[in-house]
Design a protein around this nucleic acid. Structure first.
Length: 467
RNA sequence: GGCGGGGUAGCCAAGUGGUAAGGCACGGCUCUGCAAAAGCUGUAUUCGUCGGUUCGAUUCCGACCCUCGCCUCCA
């Protein structure tokens, strides 16, 4: 079965075939670094991570770009409010972003271009010049340059609406008289007071690039004029990606992107995440509440990317339980008495991968995992699972984790806990239950749960609160 | 007003023209000094409502109700 993905452009699930066999050119819209990213942003990045890892699981080489927008209205406003240089203001947020990616086990892209890098600014200016030459853009009185949407017949194709019929919105600003058409968007924004010392020289005077042209320049600059896949959150469909298509195709004359994939927004406890509603969370907020990056990852990845995801603490707790079950099963397999390897291997099949082939059907893929856990746990209870089968299963789950990234943290047991365990074992041998229970509490206080099994005491890391 | 996505057990959520995956929670059992943990196991005559097509619809068609999102710089 081939890989199949839903294409926002055609609104259909299509067979996926990269332009160059075996290689995927993937562009993913990254963060604007004016603040810490919130969990809604991370839903998009985790979806993209799942996509990349699955493509790689299928043997494709992925060349991925994720841009960092480090100049726009918000970053400028932020740096001016703090009285800092733009680069000094954005630096800590860039750093935090990469830390958060690690926390969530999101694989690094191959390139993280920054909009303010000189080579990209130069490229943007070059593209804008070409657009003006070809009649797709014009300079307004104040020195700003706008894209002329009437010059591009396909404008509106991605979002599936006619730009001429857009409702007059409250967002139409009163400086629109400078544009030929309210739908024309800025390629270059002329400097004004509010920009302070942020600005670059251009053939049209001092100013800064518009948001859309940043992505077009970085995408085509690094991946070439024709991308295989371009991803982002659904809110990027219009105007951002629509604008990217227009700019890029008018410059290169080639089809910019073959497959557009967008993930739905995240809701929190049933309503839109907003600071005013008190349900706005950054990853850091959740970490402080005691949730792990792996748990957040599970919660955000476990609902299909094309469905709205309602983020709740109940869902986070469900993620924790499900992961513990997976951990427990893996540990059981690892502890199965070792026998001759290479014998009685098990055919584990590829139902997991096939589920993901179908437009990243994560629910079906997770069901495959839990079915496997249940059936093999049953056999371990019966004592009929052979060491060879356990080896096969461990190999299988390793493949699963190459895509999902759910492997347990390698938490080393502190020496203190080891001593407590030894003392408790003595107490238990002497049937001093009271002492045994006291030590159990002491161990729990260090963050570990002791379980008494047939094979003796076993440790499990205790969740760090969070409920 | 335009365009689009949803409504499946307490919660989350797959799915198919032939009679409902999976996860969490909950109950039962096993294990255990007790507990915890873990494992097993049970739980939707039913898939928003009303019609239609069909031998048969949760799945196709129509109407309606509810809900969410986008409509110019928010992932």
């Amino acid at each position: 079965m081939p890989l199949r993905f839903f294409n926002t452009l055609t609104r259909q699930v299509e067979d996926f075939m990269p332009r160059e066999a075996g290689k995927v050119r993937l562009y993913t819209c990254g963060p604007t670094v004016y603040n810490f990213a919130h969990i809604g942003n991370f839903r998009a990045y985790i979806f993209e991570d799942l996509l990349q890892r699955h493509l790689e699981y299928r043997g494709l080489k992925v060349d991925r770009v994720m841009n960092l927008t480090d100049v726009d209205d918000k970053t400028i406003r932020g740096c001016r409010a703090c009285g800092m240089a733009l680069a000094d203001f954005t630096a800590p947020f860039k750093k935090a972003f990469f830390e958060d990616l690690d926390t969530l086990r999101i694989k690094r892209a191959d390139h993280f271009p920054e909009a303010t890098a000189p080579e990209h600014i130069t490229r943007m200016i070059g593209m804008i010049s070409t657009l003006i030459e070809k009649g797709h853009a014009y300079r307004a009185e104040d020195g700003s340059v706008y894209f002329r949407i009437r010059s591009f017949a396909d404008y509106g194709k991605l979002a599936h609406f006619n730009p001429e019929e857009l409702r007059d919105g409250v967002r139409v600003r009163n400086d629109e008289y400078e544009k030929e058409n309210v739908g024309d968007f800025a390629l270059w924004k002329a400097w004004d007071e509010a920009d302070g010392d942020v600005g670059w020289e251009s053939p049209w005077g001092r100013g800064r690039p518009g948001w859309h042209i940043e992505c077009s320049a970085m995408a085509t600059g690094i991946l070439g004029p024709e991308l295989d896949i371009h991803c982002g959150g659904e809110d990027n469909i219009f105007p951002h990606h629509e604008a990217e298509i227009a700019q890029s195709e008018c410059v290169t004359g080639k089809k910019f992107v073959r497959l557009w994939m967008h993930c739905r927004h995240l809701q929190v406890e049933g309503s839109k995440m907003a600071k005013s509603a008190g349900n706005f969370f950054t990853l850091r907020d959740l970490m402080e509440k005691g949730w792990s990056g792996r748990e957040v990852r599970y919660a955000l990845i476990s609902v299909k990317y094309r469905e709205p995801l309602n983020f709740t603490f109940e869902g986070l707790a469900a993620a924790r339980s499900a992961l513990q079950r997976l951990d427990e099963w893996t540990t059981r397999l690892q502890e199965l008495p070792k026998g001759a390897s290479g014998e009685n291997l098990m055919e584990t099949g590829d139902a997991f991968g096939e589920a993901l082939d179908d437009d990243l059907n994560i629910s079906a893929a997770l069901a495959v995992i839990f079915d496997m856990i249940r059936t093999t746990n049953r056999r371990m209870d019966e004592g009929t699972l052979t060491p060879g089968e356990a080896i096969s299963l461990l190999k299988w789950v390793k493949g699963v984790n190459a895509v999902l990234g759910f492997e347990a943290e390698a938490g080393a047991v502190p020496a203190v806990v080891g001593e407590l365990l030894a003392r408790r074992a003595e107490a238990r041998a002497a049937k001093e239950w009271k002492l045994s229970d006291t030590i159990r509490d002491e161990i729990l206080a260090t963050g570990w749960i002791v379980k008494d099994t047939k094979e003796g005491q076993k440790l499990t890391p205790a969740p760090r609160g969070g409920a």
